[in-house]
Amino acid sequence: MGDGTRVDVSELEQMARRCRVDIVKMTHSAKSGHPGGSLSAIDCMVAIYGTCLRFDTSNPDWEDRDRFIMSKGHASPAMYSILHQMGVLDEGDIMGFRTLGSVCQGHVDMNWTKGVDFSAGSLGMGLSFGLGCAIAAKMDSSDRKIWVMLGDGETQEGQIWEAAMAAKYHNATNLRAIVDRNRIQNDDFMNVQMEIGDIGEKFRSFGWTVKEVDGHDMSSLVDVVDWANSEDGGPVAIVANTIKGNGVSFMENNPSFHGKAPNDEELRIALEELS
């Protein structure tokens, strides 16, 4: 990707659908993992990977690639499904998810998986890491861009706001954060656990340029990603309003599918809905 050609929206929607199939199959096969936050994030990720991320699938270690930092590392099935659909991982790789020796570790890990730029699993760290990548890119006069995918629950971590403050101070115009605003965290809805309020406004108050988007409307996503990619007054944050579990009816807006895999019957229904 990254050659500037725009893929058409329905093709991206098809890719996202195939990713969703991967996500439910992977978690079913592992009997564990995090389908909910993978399904909510996947359309945003497809829009980014499918339209603008400079990334060479035959050389994932290319130094001057854009970076994609999956800070909410538990949504690893989303990451692996993208890499699968782009041909970096094969079916065997993703179906080994969470098993001993698999390149698809429970949480995304840069040492285990080609095409993964960050070792996550502990929430709150990815924006800082992305900022480090952004500062390094500027020092090297490289125009590579750094995308960071955050969970909305994750923004409860103070370190996110340390990074938000530092990104503006260091004029990280090459840094883009996208928040998966699905309003559910681990135990329950955010307004039960710890409501953070207007996340976009908080980023704005730290000097970021912010837009909100429907995180499941591919055509709006393509537009906002295109805007973010070319916006140079950043840092830029996109708050994507999403539905946890999106695409699988019984997982949608259902906190219990944050960290629970579908059983055999649930897989059957999910695949039917996604066909």
Binding site: A136, M139, M165
Partner: peptide, 24 residues
């Protein structure tokens, strides 16, 4: 080549990690 990160040590450690992953 000096990056001031303020009184925010957790952020500093991960900014360092990001820079190291980019060849610094």
């Amino acid at each position: 080549r000096t990056v001031s990160l303020g009184i925010a040590e957790q952020n500093m450690m991960l900014v360092a990690a990001g820079m190291a992953s980019s060849g610094k």
